[in-house]
């Protein structure tokens, strides 16, 4: 196993595991679909990073934050459904990216490029994913209650604005890191698919969170290993592994 493969695996496992755990809250809040357009909105940032030669995640992050603020403000101002707003954001992100994304470098932005991740980027990914994991773990009951009934959460003394800020920050970080692993097109899958598979087989909340995280980690390991030996891009393989796990859980769905 080469050092580069170790770096890819470590970064991939941390990013996919924490994304999948966060995904259990996003699925509950019916917000998994939002991660997709945020990933797309990260594309212009990824494009800038590729043009000027710095980390894709670093380029993606400010664009994702801007995207979250944009959706949040547009929803308050227009009262349009989240789906309509995300469609607008999606198109804007992709259009802006293709305006100046060098076509020979497009693949890395679109489907990710974890196989070339450096030492510093790996350390940053581990620290940031770890922080997201700790924050989500700490705030899980409160965010879950907010997603079940916001007013009930407020009357129980929960500071909804503060927890929503933590939650949205976690999404922003995971989407930006996810662009490195699976590219701007498939970030939604990184949070949604393991969580959906976990929901199929889980009876309790603890089981739900743990199994989603495990599915995320397994997908990253298999996807990156197969990619290394088959010479195919890792991002799509991570997602396909995740989809396969989901399909396996379908007959076990507890409905």
């Amino acid at each position: 196993m080469t050092f580069q493969l170790v770096l890819s695996l470590v970064a991939g496992v941390f990013i996919a595991g924490s994304a999948a755990y966060l995904g259990t809250l996003m699925l509950s809040k019916k917000m998994a679909v939002v991660a997709g357009p945020l990933g797309h909105l990260a594309l212009p940032g990824a494009a800038l990073a590729l043009v000027y030669g710095f980390s894709i995640s670093l380029g993606a992050f400010p664009f994702v934050v801007a995207g979250i603020l944009l959706i949040w403000l547009l929803e308050i101002r227009t009262k349009l459904h989240m789906e309509a707003l995300t469609a607008i954001v999606f198109a804007t992100g992709v259009a802006a990216a293709f305006l100046f994304l060098p076509i020979d470098k497009a693949e890395a932005a679109l489907v990710g490029d974890i196989s070339k991740i450096g030492v510093h980027a790996t350390i940053a990914s581990v620290i940031l994913s770890g922080l997201v994991l700790i924050a989500v773990r700490h705030c899980y009951p409160e965010i879950m209650l907010i997603s079940i009934h916001e007013d009930l959460a407020k009357t129980e003394g929960i500071n909804v604005k503060l927890y929503n800020l933590v939650y949205l920050s976690a999404i922003a970080i995971i989407v930006a890191l996810g662009v490195d692993l699976v590219g701007g097109l498939m970030t939604a899958a990184l949070v949604a698919i393991p969580a959906a598979a976990a929901r199929n087989i889980s009876r309790t909340i603890v089981h739900y969170g743990v199994s989603s995280g495990v599915f995320g980690v397994i997908s990253a390991i298999i996807g990156i290993l197969v990619s290394t030996y088959a010479g195919l891009p890792a991002g799509p393989l991570v997602i396909l592994t995740s989809s396969t796990i989901f399909l396996i859980t379908v007959p076990l769905a507890k409905v």
Binding site: S28, P141, E142, M144, L145, I148, E156, R199, S202, R203, T204, I205, V206, H207, Y208, K254
Partner: peptide, 13 residues
Amino acid sequence: DLPLTVEDFFALK
């Protein structure tokens, strides 16, 4: 649509 038991619901607080 949540895998939430009654015990989990109480654990939220």
